[in-house]
Every structure is written in C-alpha cells, then in structure tokens.
C-alpha cells in the first residue's frame, strides 16, 4: 500500500524542537541534513519501498477559472499562509505500522548541532484505483 509522507514548511502541530529555518544552519549542518534525506531515499530504493520524492519551491500561486474567454485569475503568494507544503515522499509498504516507522525515521533528520529535528511529517494513505473484486 502506498503512503504520502508530506513535509511542511509551516502548518501541522507545534514543533517540539526549535530548529529555525534551514538557511540559518551552518553549511555542514545543511549538508548533513541533505545527506540524511538522500541516504533515506536510497535505503528505501534498496528495500523496494521507494516510489517518488519531490521538493517544492515555497513560492506558489493560487489560480482559478474566471469565466468563458477570460484568462485565469491568479492570487498570492501569501506570506502568511498557515500551511505550506515543502515536498513529499511516496512509499509503497506492507503495512501502516511500517509507514509509521519510516516516517519516524525521516523525522529524525539532523538539524542544528547534528541533533534530530523531530519534524512533524504528515502521513496520508493513497486511495487505490482498483475496486475489490469481491461483491
């Protein structure tokens, strides 16, 4: 079963460690963090559980339809948006417990002073595209 691990720049429960924003970290701390993330993805690749990973720019725009023959309306970006998605990883695992375990591990990525940042990650199950055959 597939799960989305959603990383937020903002939003979610109150952080338990004040790790600031990554642009305040030392270069070594940034490197260690990035290495942890890519090692994590590589490990999942080797266990046959990796599906996809993507980082998103914090700059986003809201877009909507504005009626026939008119260009779409845009709005934002909003500096004060409560929830801001930073990126995601998609995993394909045997169980919910395994998904929790992996999310916990990813949340232990190091931050300032090499300490785990205990970052909140959002775990969302995918809906399958297949209906069960049984009736």
């Amino acid at each position: 079963m597939k799960y989305l691990l959603l990383k937020h720049y903002r939003g979610g429960p109150e952080p338990v460690v004040d790790y600031g924003t990554i642009d305040r970290w030392s270069p070594d701390e940034v490197d260690a963090h990035m290495r942890y993330m890519s090692d994590f993805a590589a490990k999942l690749q080797s266990t046959g559980e990796f599906v996809d990973a993507q980082a998103l720019s914090p700059e986003g725009t809201f877009v909507r339809y504005d009626g026939e023959g008119r260009p779409p309306v845009t709005d934002g970006p909003f500096a004060e948006t409560k929830d801001l998605v930073a990126g995601w990883m998609v995993i394909d695992v045997e169980s919910y417990e395994r998904a929790l375990e992996l999310a916990g591990e990813l949340s232990a990525a190091p931050g300032p002073n090499g300490e785990p940042i205990h970052e909140w990650l959002e775990l969302r199950p995918f809906l399958s595209n297949k209906a069960e055959t049984a009736e």
């Binding site: 599906v51 996809d52 394909d92």
Partner: peptide
Amino acid sequence: AYLVPEATMAQRISR
C-alpha cells in the same frame, strides 16, 4: 502494473 519505479521493483525482487 504496481505503479512503482522499475528500480524499486528490481530491488524488491532481488531482496
């Protein structure tokens, strides 16, 4: 068929 990357499936099989 299982909507995962080929490399992931290859690893799953070799494991």
